[in-house]
């Protein structure tokens, strides 16, 4: 079943076409990779899905609902969570509080409930803390609960972003270069983590430069170049695609 459908989406910045008429679908329960050279428009596609940018044309359908142009927080609430390419944690807040941010959209206590704290609010609060802790344990950060986010290692900060995203209870998790800045060991652990996330029934869409990682975990891969989709298929199909090989070689030289 299709969970996310990106349909004829285009976006330009000041005349520069960043994403040009891109189409793809993400099936429920799969891991899909979005790859391409630097500046191919991958992150822009992510930002269009998460509502950080509004597409100039085209539609984005999630779970059968048109989410084009909705604000990011509404899209999160509908079930799409993300991590950022450049880590964006609440650096001066504790690790647990960072995850509690993700719990926010599944809670309902308003200003008055927070002031007067009736029983249900206390219960909700307690449950949220518990859920947040469980997500921390899930990614392996349970020992860092009260540490400040800025004190974590780079790799652990990436994991914390994933925990925060998971706390929103997403149907679709969007990871923007999750292995960026990670060492070999951490990357291995990440592969296992992504597998665990998939086992929870969460669909994953990711951008990654580490090709071996992409080939290993993605059931389907979409290749972008200059804002246009040039190929789509399984790892084997992509590896054999002449257009991809050309683009790939071209961008090897760039690096």
């Amino acid at each position: 079943m299709t969970l996310l459908k990106v349909y004829n989406v285009s976006k330009s910045f000041g005349g520069l076409m960043a994403v040009n008429d891109v189409n793809f679908e993400v099936s429920e329960g799969t891991v899909m990779g979005l790859i391409g050279p630097n500046g191919a428009g991958k992150t822009t596609v992510f930002n269009l899905i998460t509502g950080n940018y509004k597409p100039d044309s085209g539609e984005i359908i999630f779970s059968g609902k048109n989410i084009t142009g909705l604000s990011p927080n509404k899209i999160v609430k509908l079930g799409i969570a993300r991590t950022f390419q450049t880590i964006r944690l609440f650096q001066n807040r504790s690790v647990l509080e960072n995850v509690l941010a993700g719990c926010h959209c599944r809670m309902r206590a308003g200003v008055l409930a927070c002031m007067f704290q009736p029983g249900w609010q206390k219960q909700e609060e307690h449950q949220a803390v518990k859920n947040a802790f469980q997500e921390l344990r899930f990614v392996g950060l349970e020992k860092e609960v009260n540490n400040q986010a800025k004190n974590l290692s780079y790799g652990n900060q990436r994991l914390l972003e994933i925990a925060r995203a998971l706390a929103t209870r997403p149907k679709l998790l969007i990871l923007d270069e999750p292995a960026g800045g990670m060492n070999e060991q951490e990357t291995q652990a990440l592969v296992r983590l992504i597998d665990q996330i998939k086992k929870r029934g969460i669909t994953i869409l990711l951008i990654e430069h580490d090709m071996s990682l992409v080939m290993k975990i993605c059931e389907k891969i979409v290749v972008l170049e200059h804002g246009t989709k040039i190929a789509e298929g399984t790892a084997e199909q992509i590896k054999a695609d002449p257009q991809v090989i050309e683009a790939y070689l071209g961008w090897e030289e760039d690096d």
């Binding site: 990011p72 927080n73 964006r88 609440f90 509080e97 509690l100 941010a101 925060r164």
Partner: peptide, 18 residues
């Protein structure tokens, strides 16, 4: 907490569903 997240990083707060 929501207010504090906004103070720290508006974009991350919005992206966390606030």
């Amino acid at each position: 907490r929501a207010l504090n997240y906004i103070k720290e990083d508006e974009l991350a707060a919005e992206g966390s569903g606030i």
